[in-house]
Design a protein around this nucleic acid. Structure first.
Lengths: 344, 344
DNA sequence: TTGTACGCGTTATCAC
DNA sequence: GTGATAACGCGTACAA
């Protein structure tokens, strides 16, 4: 056992110096002031101040079978989309005395699984997860142990869990329709691999649907793994070769790929929008500063975080209603990267 | 007391189904395989798998007086600088089975204090903090309770704690010297309020020193609170009115103010670098994409996070050597926003 | 209004 | 190699 060089102050110490019992102190700590004599209350308060006592959450948690801990499992904390959500989630947690444990998975199912286990060991009360979709059995397990789980951004219908995100179909259709109306005749949809990620699939499907609806002959859908740089470059070149400048545009399925595409275009010496028009998901702090400004679909990320966390607390408070799927409206922000095509 | 709808699986359950004692299971859990018979080991392993047992970290923590928890207190998790550090810290933690609890303070000392108390209640083993500098007494208290504390980015000399960051003096001087050599005759230094924040002070002082060294008559130092938009705009206008285009440049003390300045310049219809040259701290994902590219001082943020966390673990392992001040070299990344002045 | 006694799930001690 | 037992710090029946 670890040597305690400084003896920690416990509830017993407080009880002693206040001249009352542990029970009374415990009542004080949980705010049951009405059951306490004013005398006791004052003495306890004084003792706590004097001893600098802080209740041990591990002991409380053990006793109450509650950790007051929320796990947040995200693919990449470096992604502004994720941190904005985290920000919202954190604000709500703070207010309630909960803390958030962050876990970064890099979209790696193995890492995700390890984290789920760890969080399970810590007896988290709630979990906010942007899942790889490859650990459903463990998530189900967690849910059975009465952990309140909310899926953020990515859905897994078979799990029947609360979900919070943006309305992908509507937002994508609005954006693509806008581009069609601006006169683009070749519109490419760039996305990370679709497999298993609902968000990407919903956006890709919406893209295809709307193109069909407008009588486009083909849907140029490009999937690229972003682990390395080449796949995206290859796909981009494929598109550029098969299209004519002036009437072509790119739509990026999320902020990460949007950024990489802009980098790639710059690298190839192509101008926005003269050589290629571009737009995509995720408003970021820099999207209005690049070239003529980048047209984006903005998601209410902070609000998503707040809402997701509020659902968790609702569940923790005993709400057993059927699972909800909360989809916020995205907002199309039109900028110079998608001007009307010449001659319209 | 909370009702347990599902009985949780405990070490006792595992012991029963494996037909051994709790002690033996505990030994298994802590990896003392050499003391166990192969028979016992197999049966325990099987029982754990079958029951889906996960050891309760709260109970372990309570017993061992260790939480395996690290607190990370940052001003703004939305700032890429902070998340990159978090990323590094998280990677190191994961490897050791520790978890990180994130706390967002908005640079508000009151919030910071609340978080320190909460983390204290959770008996965190380590703390990585980007402090407001206003809660020194509580940090000292934490340190006395043998929490390993590492200050990130901002120093507080009086606390005598380990510190990890960038070499502000060197980096700033290199950047300003570079701008002087490029021919700028009026260089403004923009920063958030200096008071209490070592990083800002060190950079501001380095700026003044180098200007004096090169015989500049005055050091144009502008402080602006970024809570609202106007103060910065006012300061910017003040500089623009007192300087001539073509020979003037701005240096931003960090990434946040750099971004806001670029926004402000765009808002005022000023071109970079024609009307004003600009450079500043913090390389970000977009700095090479804006206009001719923004000259920046890049900090090894991920490495800072890794290093800070490694120091925490060093301390936890019993290293009692004097506190260190680890300063990484910044890297000047030269781009088009700071061209040579015409006529040089 | 207050206090006694027990248990939460785990590990450490000590004996076998 | 193994196991009984006492703690860790707290909350809560139950009794007073």
């Amino acid at each position: 056992m670890r040597k305690k060089l400084t003896e920690r102050v416990t509830i017993t110490d407080v009880a002693h110096t206040a001249g009352v019992s542990k029970t009374t102190v415990s009542r004080y700590l949980s705010g049951q002031y009405h059951i306490l004599s004013e005398n006791a209350r004052n003495r306890i308060q004084e003792a706590i101040r004097e001893l600098n006592y802080r209740p041990n959450q591990m002991a409380r948690g053990l006793k109450q079978d509650r950790s007051y801990l929320i796990g947040m499992v995200i693919a990449d904390i470096t992604n502004p989309f994720s941190t904005a959500i985290l920000r919202g989630a954190e604000d709500v947690c703070k207010q309630r005395g909960y803390s958030i444990m962050v876990c970064n998975t890099d979209n790696d199912p193995a890492k995700e699984r390890e984290y789920i286990f760890m969080l399970q060991s810590r007896r988290i009360d709630g979990l906010l997860i942007n899942t790889t979709g490859r650990n459903n059995q463990f998530l189900r397990q967690l849910a059975e142990e009465h952990t309140a789980i909310v899926l953020v951004d990515r859905k897994v219908p078979e799990l029947g869990l609360d979900t919070v995100g943006v309305d992908n179909e509507l937002s994508t259709k609005e954006a693509i329709r806008f581009m069609i109306n601006r006169g683009y005749e070749q519109i490419a949809f760039f996305t990370e691999p679709l497999e298993g990620v609902s968000t990407r699939q919903e956006r890709a499907n919406a893209f295809k649907d709307i193109l069909i609806q407008y009588g486009f002959p083909v849907a140029d859908l490009y999937e690229a793994d972003l682990q390395q740089a080449e796949p995206l470059l290859k796909q981009l070149e494929r598109f550029l070769e098969s299209s004519r400048e002036g009437k072509r545009a790119i739509f990026a399925a999320n902020g990460v790929i949007l950024l990489k595409l802009i980098h790639a275009l710059k690298h190839k010496g192509l101008r926005i929008p003269d050589d290629v028009a571009i737009a995509g998901f995720d408003e970021m702090e820099w999207t209005d500063l690049i070239g003529p400004g980048i047209t984006t679909v903005s998601q209410p990320t902070y609000q998503i975080g707040v809402t997701a966390m509020e659902r968790i607390f609702r569940r923790l408070e005993g709400d057993h209603s059927p699972s909800q799927n909360i989809a916020f409206a995205g907002k199309l922000i039109i900028r110079g990267s998608t001007p009307s095509v010449k001659g319209l």
